[in-house]
Amino acid sequence: MSELNLTPNIPDPDDFYAELLAAHEGLTKAESDALNARLILILANHIGDRKLLSAAIEAARAAGQE
């Protein structure tokens, strides 16, 4: 993979989304922030490709500015 995939890629989106939120259930704000940070680091390491990671950071940043 050489381009950041920004098209739908998760087979069961509703299920994934529910699982993501369920992981945060019952956590304080600080615990949730920590979980998110760990999750980002694990996913980033799995991707590994520095260009893709830069593209992902940029896509996340840009979407927040709209």
Binding site: A34, A37, R38, I40, L41, I42, N45
Partner: peptide, 15 residues
């Protein structure tokens, strides 16, 4: 938050 996340993960995962 990220610093502590790295340290927590480092205990369990080499990456």
């Amino acid at each position: 938050i990220f610093r502590d996340a790295v340290l927590d993960l480092s205990e369990h995962h080499e990456f």
